[in-house]
Amino acid sequence: MALDQSFVGRTYPPTPPYEVGREKIREFAEAVGDPNPVYVDPEAAKAFGHSDVIAPPTFVFSITFKAAGQVIHDPQLGLDYSRVVHGDQKFVYVRPVRAGDRLTVTSTIEGIKSLAGNDIVDVRGEVHDESGEHVVTAWTKLVARAAEEA
């Protein structure tokens, strides 16, 4: 069933702040096998002009995707989450995410399309820190695959 186009442009309330911890960044860097010292050593990060360790570029997805749950699980939108796959992902950074950040995400539905029975939803997540500074924007394309013929 095609999704309601009137949801395009809908913005959800900002999420409660997510506090970025040094050890969480370390855990993520280890999980992707990346030994770059700027992720674990504050001195190495400072040598590049960062005030504390920074997070790998895709780290913030865990935060924005959780926020996108507001869209995915919105009963009024009615997306079939059991059929959802990740189509595209894009980030535009104002600055890297770093330890100590308290980040909130504001999610907006940018587009809804129906293509060959698949529902395609584009969600934009604007990430701000505690001072209101814009840190990064994440775009996530979700594809709910068409249900199989009965």
Binding site: N36, P56, P57, D88, Q89, F91, Y93, R95, P96
Partner: peptide, 9 residues
């Protein structure tokens, strides 16, 4: 890594 301004796939 902070020099990455944009990344999409």
């Amino acid at each position: 890594p902070g020099a990455v301004v944009e990344y999409g796939v």
